[in-house]
Amino acid sequence: LVRYRTISKIPQITLNFVDLKGDPFLASPTSDREIIAPKIKERTHNVTEKVTQVLSLGADVLPEYKLQAPRIHRWTILHYSPFKAVWDWLILLLVIYTAVFTPYSAAFLLKETEEGPPATECGYACQPLAVVDLIVDIMFIVDILINFRTTYVNANEEVVSHPGRIAVHYFKGWFLIDMVAAIPFDLLIFGSGSEELIGLLKTARLLRLVRVARKLDRYSEYGAAVLFLLMCTFALIAHWLACIWYAIGNMEQPHMDSRIGWLHNLGDQIGKPYNSSGLGGPSIKDKYVTALYFTFSSLTSVGFGNVSPNTNSEKIFSICVMLIGSLMYASIFGNVSAIIQRLYSGTARYHTQMLRVREFIRFHQIPNPLRQRLEEYFQHAWSYTNGIDMNAVLKGFPECLQADICLHLNRSLLQHCKPFRGATKGCLRALAMKFKTTHAPPGDTLVHAGDLLTALYFISRGSIEILRGDVVVAILGKNDIFGEPLNLYARPGKSNGDVRALTYCDLHKIHR
Rank of each mutant, 00 (worst) to 15 (best):
D404Q: 03
H448S: 07
F185W: 05
P309R: 06
S161K: 05
I146K: 01
F190M: 12
Y329N: 15
V336W: 03
L230T: 04
A69R: 14
A235N: 01
A213G: 09
I388N: 06
G116M: 08
A330I: 03
L227W: 01
A392I: 06
L230V: 08
T120R: 15
T424P: 09
T295S: 14
A242D: 01
D143E: 01
C400S: 04
I183R: 01
N275L: 05
D133F: 01
I189M: 12
L414N: 02
I96P: 01
A204H: 01
E115N: 03
Y97E: 01
M433T: 09
Q353F: 03
H408L: 03
L428C: 08
T300F: 04
S161P: 03
L92M: 06
T120F: 04
F333P: 05
G325M: 01
V142S: 01
Q415R: 07
L236W: 01
A106H: 01
K418C: 04
A106K: 01
D268G: 02
L414T: 02
V95W: 01
Q372L: 09
A392M: 08
L145E: 01
A69C: 04
V142W: 01
S192W: 14
E195K: 08
V393G: 02
Y344W: 05
V95I: 13
I189V: 13
Y222M: 04
V447I: 11
D286N: 01
I138F: 08
A119C: 04
H364E: 01
A225D: 01
L201I: 07
F304V: 04
G271E: 03
V302F: 03
V136I: 14
I146G: 01
P309S: 01
I270F: 03
C427P: 05
V212T: 06
G280T: 03
L409P: 02
A423Y: 01
G164R: 14
S258I: 07
V95D: 01
T233I: 13
C427A: 09
I361F: 01
I177N: 01
L355H: 09
I141D: 03
Y124V: 05
Y97A: 01
K285L: 13
M256T: 14
F185K: 03
L176V: 12
I361D: 01
S313L: 13
P128I: 14
R74C: 06
L355M: 12
R371D: 05
E221P: 04
R349L: 06
G334P: 04
P184Q: 03
W75F: 10
R356H: 12
D137L: 01
C417K: 05
I366Q: 01
L401K: 01
G278A: 03
L394Q: 04
C232T: 05
G193E: 08
W87Y: 02
L413C: 07
I339S: 04
F108T: 01
C400P: 09
A440T: 09
V160A: 03
G281I: 01
Q253E: 11
V180H: 01
N310D: 03
A403D: 01
E221T: 06
D178T: 01
R356K: 15
P82L: 08
F83E: 09
L241R: 01
I96R: 01
P103R: 01
I388P: 04
L343D: 12
D88A: 01
E314I: 01
W75M: 12
V212H: 07
N154Q: 08
P254Q: 15
N310S: 05
I270M: 01
H162Q: 10
Y377H: 07
A167G: 04
Y344C: 10
